[in-house]
Design a binder for these strands. Structure first.
Lengths: 204, 204
DNA sequence: AATGCAAGTAAGTAACCACTTGCATTCAGC
DNA sequence: GCTGAATGCAAGTGGTTACTTACTTGCATT
């Protein structure tokens, strides 16, 4: 296996758990299964390694495409949002960590922010298409609607495990409900929300 | 001025900027204008100080009450959400930091989470009142709607300064738009959204 | 004047950390 | 079999950190 690659992967994992200062070169090297000195032979400084690792990780963040020709907005949005939520939830520790380091190391999370901007733009364009095809009302701003839906999904993915009191309903229901509410908000014909099932809390 | 009080305030400020490991006892003492040894005379360990400081801070987090007798949902919600957003935005660095430290120090951010749960419950009860008085449709779940609106506001407050591309519209407009969308989503009669003004980005 | 308390000062300890150096080992390609 | 590049290992350097110790200073009450 490639040493450099495993160092990048280990760096992301340790960083997500412990942050910049907590991610010691010793621990990263151990996690990667290589000697600490080897780490410094591949990367001049710890900071250079972290930056490369987060950039590498963010480069591999992708999303589904939303259809160019919307047919069933509810089904299409639910599928897309489910994937997006699942991905966010998987890397929630990393996201929280890099947000927390923003004040002191804005460069590190810049990569992640760019991914987020790309994804928001994809959703925005889709909502614009809905408007153009008269599948939604003409009088809403698609950037605001995008931020509303993505904000709800983001907050859900970040808060579900830390504030279970606020999220007693299941992940499966959550996305469906957010999408249903948004479609009603933007005047897209949507059926009434389905009844909620009980929450299925999973440990991590 | 009370030494203990100024230590608590300084601890929160330094913690927000630098996190648990970055908040050195030296720096906190300096920020509080007292000697480092004095810090240890008031608090046995650094961890005890940080915990006391964050608990003290969270205890002072309050919100407006939403009216027990809803009359004008749009106006009432906008006023409430504006305050909530302003408060979140003011302490965004602290929130990001304590979220980032969640994996390693869940106890520290527990205080903040509790405040968030309290605030969400207040909004939830208000939405329930709207339903009861037939000011909103009967077929939505108020917890989901609460998380949708609060999620949008939270994500806005956290992302506005770090991802200006996603938030080109002004803070002032933002809240109004989120509330308008939510009211339409829950079947409350709401006027069409107002036109957006251009963003007013403020440095910090 | 005597006492006590809260705070300051200076110095030190033990641990940890990023990063370096020197040397031994392995192993692929000629 | 030899060379060179990549890796491991042991040890060390200089800096930082939480926390301690021993002592001094200023101020208020008695």
């Amino acid at each position: 296996m490639d040493v450099r690659e495993s160092l990048l992967k280990a760096a992301v994992a340790v960083y997500a758990d412990a942050g910049v200062r907590g991610a010691t070169t010793r621990r990263i090297a151990q996690e990667a299964g290589v000697n600490e000195v080897t780490l410094f032979r591949h990367f001049k400084t710890k900071d250079e390694l972290l930056d490369a690792a987060l950039a590498h990780f963010a480069r591999n963040v992708t999303t589904l495409d939303l259809p160019a020709d919307p047919v069933d907005p509810h089904a299409e949005l639910v599928a897309w949002c489910k994937t997006h939520h699942r991905e966010l939830y998987k890397i929630r520790a990393l996201i929280r960590r890099s947000m927390g380091e923003y004040e002191q190391h804005p460069g590190h999370c810049q990569h992640g922010m760019q991914a987020s901007v790309r994804i928001a733009a994809e959703l925005s364009r889709y909502l614009l298409r809905l408007k153009a095809r008269r599948l939604a009302a003409p009088d809403f701003d698609e950037r605001v609607a995008t931020n509303m839906l993505m904000g709800a999904i983001f907050a859900d993915a970040m808060g579900r495990d830390t504030m279970p009191e606020r999220y007693p309903y299941s992940m499966r229901d959550a996305i469906d409900q957010y999408v249903t509410l948004l479609l009603r908000a933007i005047g897209a014909t949507a059926s009434a929300p389905a009844a909620l099932t009980t929450s299925t809390r999973k440990g991590r």
